[in-house]
Design a protein around this nucleic acid. Structure first.
Length: 780
RNA sequence: GCCUCUGUGGCGGAAUUGGUAGACGCGCUCGACUCAAAAUCGAGUUCCUUCGGGAGUGCCGGUUCGACUCCGGCCAGAGGUACCA
């Protein structure tokens, strides 16, 4: 809000909208617990939050307010879904999905964290279901390359997206097996290091690889081993501690360059079915996992990239060499650099027909089907004869039914007596409506476009949307680094490909802000206590009610589970919106967490009062106060720079300094001007006070519409400067000199200092360093 | 494990390119005003000190006339994460 108000005052057209990402699980949970309809619950929350935002005086364009749970929003989303369906960016696939047994729904890969549902925390199960997917992988390369142009995004977020997309370039090739398994005589593996192919000691497949599954059917000991592998956890810590386990199948794989060179085929717990082909060849000398595995199962460790040693002696030690170097012990590759050898092996594989250069991505297509009620209905009809058919757009929006029940778990749309009945748009025969709804991340993937343009008859108007987009300054928590920000980038690209939008990137500038935190308190029995229930007596904390001892805990993100939330309503009532705003801006830089404190807001409240008294007691007077003029103009320039950089805490500090200077100054025309200007400087942060003062000063219109004051460059520089006098880098004295004084004069002035003379004690300085207008350092 | 970020008074935090460390605020101390308190105003507030000074930005070392800032090595905390072949 401060940035929006500032940009407005500096002559920019500003679009600062507000809306509600309102579909999703919390509304359904509330419905189940409190027996209210999700829509009713959601709209009541929206009303409450809208009041809070208005009370804090945010300069929002409420005419563009939207809520994703209303048909006039999600109906347009359905139209975009149909466009993507037509453009081949949506497909339906029977696939193993991540099933959250508590929330009774499917989760996207991005929503599975350490093998658990991101919301419920329940261990995710694998299930086969027919699901809708969006082809985000079509844009994998572009999403990756586009990151380079997002110069105004934090490096951290770009890096996280890069890792998530996970591009690996390498060779996919085939091993011939000594005996066919389930009718297959070949095994596909993927590697990014084809150059090390002569260093391989074994081949391994994932425990859930089809080959392993097939073998397990005939050999129970393999089934037992597979079960053992799947029992292990998938969190980073568990993986770290987990031992490499392998099962030697007794099957041999023929080395592609020498068929009689046979590599043992293992089933191994560290190979992932979800990545590459689910099978690898192990080169222990140059891969840590392979080395750990080989040491355990006593497999040969051959050096093929020189690590200083170029002999064919067995590789020593327990640390794999993954660096660059010249190839050794590798026949026709010997002497080549890693990169050159890589290309040579790929070329040979392609020429001889046993493999091809490939790029493998970690990124998967975005599964968007959710078996939930409170989401955007997917506008598809399933017809027995025609298959899935997109609804004609004139039948949109597909509106959610109101009469639903949440007594049984699962999707209420599925159980609704009539809602799912519909005729096939193609053959007119009775058919069934899709009862899955869209992942709520779809709702937030294009709302910024709808903010920019909101016609009734279509999702947006191209020219109107492009006039505002991309978003100049996007602000959100770092928790959106992957999910939301990647989906929105994809959605924008999809619209771009379909010719609906010229831009590819939705957000030019991104800022990840911190969260509001508060101390936590626990009673003797370990239960959490809210800040209103406790009080401090000196060093100790007790319960207000009965004086029982309280254990203060660490400062954490405000959350209902820790009970450390603070209701902004009463605070805004007590101190006023401007004091609340001032406090939120004043101390912590916005990228860091903000520790909420009652004491802090009182300080802000006092300053707001002080500002008012200062403005109120302003009087017209004659005379110039050069020092105050300078302070004023330095503040104008500094506050502007700080707001542009979102360093609100520094801007606040500069305004404090100016206020202090004005209070100390005698009445003058300069002082009068400074006070009148101060009103505009605080306007973005304390708008209510500023408007009142503006009106009282008999200025026209609103200060919100006023121009930001201009700094006079001539007044930004001092004509006198304080020079530090150092001896051996230690400060000994300071002197005041005219700005621009010559080096020689400055040196002479420094040497004339009593304190310098006393320190030198008659000795001659060895050397004198003079930094003009800054300091003199005497080396003794 | 790996990657990223962070580490400065009692607290939140400032310190352009290496150039007076601790701006600004909170808190605290003392004083003024008051019968008293609140509010307000003024002074002080990194630590030690024999009042000359000395030490000091997580720790150890280096570069430099000069290091919170640059380099090397540690330690601690937060966040991210992929056994990715």
């Amino acid at each position: 809000d401060v940035l929006a108000r500032y940009k407005r005052m500096t002559g920019h057209e500003v679009l600062h909208p507000m809306g509600w990402d309102a579909f999703g699980m919390p509304a359904e949970n509330a419905a189940m617990e409190k027996k209210v309809h999700p829509g009713e619950w959601t709209r009541a929350n929206i009303a409450a939050m809208r009041d809070q935002l208005k009370r804090l005086g945010f300069a929002l364009d409420w005419s563009r307010e939207l809520a994703t749970c209303e048909p006039d929003y999600y109906g347009h989303e359905q139209a975009l879904f149909l466009d993507m369906y037509e453009a081949g960016l949506v497909y339906r696939k029977e696939s193993a999905v991540n099933w959250d047994p508590v929330d009774m729904t499917v989760l996207a890969n991005e929503q599975v964290i350490d093998g658990k549902g991101w919301r419920s925390g329940a261990p995710v199960e694998r299930r086969k279901l027919s699901q809708w997917f969006l082809k985000i992988t079509d844009f994998a390369d572009d999403l990756l390359n586009g990151l380079d142009d997002l110069k105004l995004w934090p490096d951290k977020v770009r890096l996280m997206q890069e890792n998530w997309i996970g591009k690996s370039v390498g060779l996919k090739f085939r091993f011939t097996l000594s005996q066919p398994v389930a009718g297959q005589s070949q095994l596909h593996v993927f590697t990014t290091r084809p150059d090390t192919i002569f260093g391989s000691s074994f081949v391994a497949v994932a425990a859930d690889h089809p080959l392993a599954t097939a073998l397990a059917e005939k050999r129970p000991e393999i089934g037992k081993f597979i079960a053992e592998c799947q029992a292990g956890g998938t969190s980073a810590a568990e993986i770290e501690g987990a031992e490499k386990l392998g099962f030697d199948t007794g099957i041999a794989c023929a080395h592609p360059f020498q068929p009689e060179w046979e590599l043992p085929l293992y089933i191994a717990n560290f190979v992932l079915m979800a990545y590459g082909t689910g099978a690898v060849f192990g080169v222990p000398a140059h891969d840590q996992r392979d080395l750990d595995f080989s040491r355990k199962y006593d497999l040969p460790v051959r050096r093929v990239v020189a690590d200083g040693d170029t002999t064919d002696a067995e590789f020593e030690g327990d640390e794999a060499f993954t660096g660059d170097g010249a190839l050794v012990n590798s026949r026709f590759l010997d002497g080549m650099a890693v990169e050159e050898a890589r290309a040579a092996v790929i070329a040979r594989a392609e020429k001889e027909g046993w493999g091809e250069g490939t790029t493998v991505w970690r990124l998967r297509d975005w599964g968007v089907s959710r078996q939930r009620y409170w989401g955007t209905p997917i506008p598809i009809i399933h017809c027995e004869d025609c298959g899935p058919v997109g609804l004609p757009k004139d039948q949109l929006p597909v509106v959610l039914p109101e009469d639903i029940d949440f007594e049984t778990p699962g999707n209420p749309l599925d159980r609704h007596p009539t809602w799912s009945k519909a005729d096939c748009p193609q053959c007119r025969k009775p058919a069934r409506r899709e009862t899955d709804t869209l992942d709520t991340f779809a709702d937030s993937s294009w709302y910024f476009i709808r903010f920019a343009s909101q016609p009734d008859d279509k999702p947006f108007d191209k020219a109107e949307a492009e006039a505002w987009l991309p978003v100049g300054q996007y602000i959100g928590g770092v928790e959106h680094a992957i999910l939301h920000l990647l989906y929105a980038r994809f959605w924008t690209r999809a619209l771009n490909r379909m010719g609906q939008l010229d831009i590819k990137e939705p957000f030019a500038g991104l800022f990840t802000q911190g969260m509001v935190t508060h101390g936590t308190y626990q009673a003797g029995d370990g239960s959490w206590l809210s800040p209103e229930e406790v009080q401090r007596n000196g060093e100790d904390w007790t319960m207000i009610e009965d004086g029982a001892p309280v254990t203060p805990g660490r400062v954490e993100k405000m959350s209902k589970s820790r009970k450390n939330t603070v209701d902004p309503g009463p605070i805004a009532n007590q101190y006023g919106a401007d004091a609340v705003r001032w406090f939120m801006l004043s101390d912590s830089p916005p990228e860091r967490d903000l520790p909420w404190s009652e004491a802090g807001i009182e300080g802000s409240w006092r300053f707001i009062q002080r500002l008012w008294r200062l403005i109120d007691t302003n009087e017209t007077a004659e005379g110039e106060d050069k020092a105050l003029d300078r302070k004023l103009h330095q503040t104008i320039a500094g506050v502007g720079e700080d707001i542009e950089a979102l360093s609100f805490n520094k801007a606040v500090a500069k305004i404090h300094e100016l206020a202090n200077a004005i209070e100390k100054a005698d009445a003058s025309e300069s002082r009068n001007t400074a006070i009148r200007t101060l009103v505009r400087l605080v306007a973005p942060m304390a708008p209510h006070l500023a408007e009142e003062a503006w009106a009282q000063m008999d200025e026209d219109g609103l200060v919100a519409d006023a121009a930001w004051p201009e700094a006079d460059p001539a007044l930004l520089v001092e004509d006198e400067v304080t020079i530090a006098i150092q001896i051996n880098g230690k400060l000994r004295d300071t002197i005041t000199a005219a700005k621009g004084i010559s080096k020689a004069d400055l040196e002479a002035a420094a040497l004339a200092s009593d304190k310098v003379a006393r320190q030198l004690d008659g000795a001659e300085p060895k050397k004198v360093i003079v930094v003009p207008d800054r300091l003199v350092n005497i080396v003794a």
